[in-house]
């Protein structure tokens, strides 16, 4: 564990807490892509179900349980109590176009040809692009509540710090994980446009609005 990875994980955790606060405080999930949230739940289930047979550390176990539980809770809330506030007409990204290629890539690129390793690869590729329905929704509406942008900023920050963590781990322990690196690079790059608007508008105290 190094400081970059720890802060990254805590940002990831914070992003979900921010999302839960937004949904609870406003009793609404408007502006949040249901598709992205379902994809994240799929990502966590595909990657973290090994929590039952693969022990790494108490920290690792806690985080896995936290991510599966909260992602389930978010999807449950968006299906049930907050269903009517969903931005359905804006959440129009075709999820098939990212799930199918992720599955195909996982079958081609994996560490070992086993069910769990292919699921791991699938989850890594899917996580890289799971934010696309959310970014698409943002583009469709052209604006976002400030708390929603903080959620996205924490998610993007988490990914950016993972890149720093990998550079650090490469030089300190010779750590190499080409699949995670390529997917992580793509995942972080997707946030560039968002971060530009976030830094130039939201952090200057203005509304998030696309030109």
């Amino acid at each position: 564990m190094n400081i970059f990875r720890l802060v990254a994980d805590l940002l990831h955790l914070a992003s979900i807490v921010i999302l839960l606060i937004k949904m609870y405080a406003t009793n609404s999930c408007s502006g949040i892509s249901f598709k992205t949230q379902v994809l994240y739940l799929a990502v966590f289930i595909a990657r973290y179900l090994d929590v039952f047979w693969h022990f790494v550390s108490v920290y690792n176990t806690f985080m896995k349980v936290f991510f599966i539980a909260t992602a389930s809770g978010v999807v449950w809330a968006m299906l049930g109590p907050l269903k009517d506030s969903r931005s359905k007409s804006l959440d129009t990204f075709r999820w098939e176009f990212i799930v199918a290629p992720s599955a195909l890539l996982a079958i081609i690129f994996h560490d070992r040809f086993t069910v769990t390793e292919i699921f791991w690869s699938f989850s890594v590729f899917l996580e890289a692009v799971a934010i696309l329905p959310q970014l698409h929704l943002l583009q469709q509406s052209g604006e976002a509540e400030t708390i929603t942008t903080h959620y996205l900023a924490a998610l993007g920050g988490y990914r950016a710090l993972y890149l720093v963590n990998w550079i650090y781990r490469y030089f300190t322990e010779g750590y190499v994980d080409v699949i995670a690196w390529c997917a992580g690079l793509v995942q972080t790059a997707l946030y560039c446009d968002f971060f530009y608007v976030y830094f130039t508008r939201v952090l200057q105290g203005r509304r998030f609005a696309l030109p």
Partner: peptide, 10 residues
């Protein structure tokens, strides 16, 4: 460079 034997990251 080495590859860790298992996935230790989240």
């Amino acid at each position: 460079a080495t590859k860790v034997a298992f996935h230790d990251e989240l």
